[in-house]
Amino acid sequence: MLQYSDKVMEQFKSMKNAGRIENADGIGKVGNPVCGDVMWIYIKVDENEVITDCKFETFGCVAAIATSSLATELVKGKKIDEAKDITNKRIVELLGGLPKEKFHCSVLAEEGIKKAIEDYKNKKAGK
């Protein structure tokens, strides 16, 4: 079993933004169930392009849940241009580190946010 930092465990226990947003403005679906990690990130964006709400649904290990939870917290309240600069490094840093085998989870969380923003932009452009 892997050793997780206190911050990882805090996120894992709180899962503050867990759940889905009905009628989300953007959804980022990343990961693969075969590998054991899937994240769906939902965002709600207002007219000023600010992410007013962000939720996640995750199938995966402690690290997958903790990284997606933290990523949603990070981007909530931010403008999308700012939010899209989120990096997996920052996520790992804020979690007080991750076991090496779990770095890919932080990459998934970053990708999830970026895909949700991309989805939002595509939807908007299509309108």
């Binding site: 892997l2 997780y4 465990m9 894992f12 054991g36 199938f59 995966g60 290990c61 085998e101």
Partner: peptide, 24 residues
């Protein structure tokens, strides 16, 4: 629909020791 390690850690938080064959 859920993954073994997150079940194990949740059980551990309740003082229950078990194991899993998940990748993690």
């Amino acid at each position: 629909y859920i993954e073994g390690e997150s079940i194990l850690i949740n059980l551990d938080l309740e003082g229950i020791c078990a194991s899993s064959g998940s990748a993690c």
